[in-house]
Each structure stands twice: as structure tokens, then as C-alpha cells.
Design a binder for these strands. Structure first.
Lengths: 143, 143
DNA sequence: TATTTTACGTCAGGCATGCTGACACAACTA
DNA sequence: TAGTTGTGTCAGCATGCCTGACGTAAAATA
């Protein structure tokens, strides 16, 4: 049982560690990467929704977002329906960076999934869904 | 595929978040918890080995370890065979804290494992082993 | 229309965690 | 004896996260 926790720790860390080089080149950190990643996953996401996903404070996200905006990785536009909301999207430059980062960690995923086999991957998903918090348990893992 | 990364992120974060209260009571942080956890997992572990597991610098670990020693959670004794090496062990107090922390996160694990079923748990393990770095891939997940 | 609420941005300051570099010492090894 | 290894420590710096307080624009509501 504890072995599962060990593995979760190592896997999360080691997967996240891929692509650290490219990130440093761009002068960004892990926090920027997470924001970049989830904006890519949820185009036009609002700031409030991104906050809910990342579970950090407005101020923490604010700084990261400003860096990404200044670097031209992300664009921020008022939503049509409610102009208080700012929709976040990756720019072309942001998309390129995100793709490069994903390309760095993808092989590890591909290999692990292939070696483990499809049934194992199903189980992997089932267990992780159970471990993620209540709010996400009923969902698809990508709130 | 990316969903797997999402889940890994959420699961690792949400599992680690359990017991944050008890930790704060003791005036400790996440870094202390990780050290506590791996010392519990590997009694009499040397400083160098703990460094290798956590992949942090000697200085970072040093601070954490000093806090734990000062708080009476961990004891440090020279190894018999090689007296340069310091063996780290939890004290009674440390064991109590670690148990309390584990008790806080255990139910989430139990429920997730039970709901997913044994085959899923097998798959979960297989995939995570593949995701953890080379050095651990051949091992048992607890280097 | 006037008021309140919502969504967002920002200033100020603080703590925890990580890093590099440099140095010191005791104990083991060749 | 000379070198290597395991450990501890000082000094300084970057990142990432936090709380609290305040301001603004737009929407919702009384």
C-alpha cells in the first residue's frame, strides 16, 4: 500500500522533470509550466477556473500569468458573453513551447503505457481517479 | 494520454494534501513530511541514501533534518561499521507523527484501491513503475 | 436606477523550499 | 601518509506559495 504512495511520488516527480531544460531556456519555472499545460488543455479557460484547477491563490497565479503574457506565450481576452471574464489562450509561441515540453515527456509515457499494456493502463486510470479529490471523482479527470 | 498526466498531477497532489493539518500543528512542512516518510520506509537509512531518494541537495536536506532532530522526531547515530555514516531513525515521537499522517491519507488509498479492484491496482503499479526513472524501473519502487 | 456582487488585477510583505559555492572535519582506504 | 568519502555548515540567492488589503469594471439584482 505504501509502495503505491512511493511510486506515485517518484512517477509524478520524474514525469514532471522531463523538459526542465527547455523550460530553463525560456526563463520559466515549474509554476509557469503548469499554467501553460492547463491552458493548453482548456483553451479559453477563465482565470477563476484555472485557479480552481491549480488550487493556488490569485496572487500566485497572477505573477505567473504576467510572466507568460509578457513573454508572449499566452493571450488574455475578455469573454464575449461576460466581459469581466478573461479568456486565456496560448499564442503560437506558447503552443510551440508547450508542444516542445510535451514532446520531451511523451516518450516516457508512451514507453510506460506500451510496456504495461492496455489493461494496466485502464487500471492506472481507475485508481488515479479514485485518488483524486471528490470534486473530480465523478468527472473525467480534466475538470 | 495527457489525461494520464492530469490524473497523476491531481492524485499526487491530493494524496499529499491529506494530513496537512497535523503537519502544521507540529510546525513542519511538506519537505519534513517527505523526509519523515522515507526515514520510516527505510529505517537506519544513511544521509547519502536519503539524498538519493529525495533528489535534493545536502543543504536543503540538512535544514529539514535539523528541524526534525531539534523537534525530537528523528535520531541520528553513527553506523557501527563505518562511523562516518549517520543512520537516521524515527524516535517514538516521530513514529507517532508519521503514523498519524499515514492514518490521515490511508482511507483515501483504501477506498480508491477497493473501488478500483485488484487488477486495476496491479495495472496502476505496472504503469507507475514504468514512469519512475530508469534507476528504479527494475527495482521494487522502494530504492 | 442604485446597490451589491462578481471577476479580475495589484501592492506589500512574509515563509518554505530549493539551489550553488565554499569550507571543515572525522573516518576510512590505498 | 596521502587521498577519498560521508557528513555538517556558512553565506547568499531564486522560486513559489501564502495572507491581507485595496481598486476597478462589468454584471446582477433590488
Amino acid at each position: 500500500m505504501k509502495q503505491g504512495v512511493d511510486l506515485l511520488f517518484f512517477a509524478a516527480r520524474d514525469v514532471a522533470s522531463e523538459g526542465a531544460g527547455k523550460l530553463a531556456e525560456a526563463g520559466l519555472g515549474r509554476a509557469h509550466r503548469r499554467a501553460l499545460y492547463f491552458i493548453a488543455r482548456h483553451p479559453a479557460i477563465s482565470v477563476a477556473d484555472l485557479l480552481a484547477i491549480l488550487k493556488v491563490t490569485k496572487q500566485s497565479l497572477g505573477r505567473v500569468l504576467n510572466d507568460l503574457l509578457a513573454g508572449g506565450y499566452v493571450e488574455r481576452k475578455p469573454a464575449l458573453r461576460d466581459r469581466r471574464m478573461r479568456q486565456l489562450r496560448l499564442t503560437e509561441k506558447g503552443t510551440a513551447l508547450e508542444s516542445a515540453l510535451w514532446a520531451a515527456q511523451r516518450p516516457k509515457l508512451v514507453r510506460a503505457f506500451r510496456e504495461a499494456g492496455p489493461e494496466a493502463v485502464m487500471g492506472f486510470r481507475r485508481v488515479l481517479m479514485g485518488l483524486a479529490d471528490e470534486a473530480r471523482r465523478a468527472g473525467d479527470g480534466t475538470p
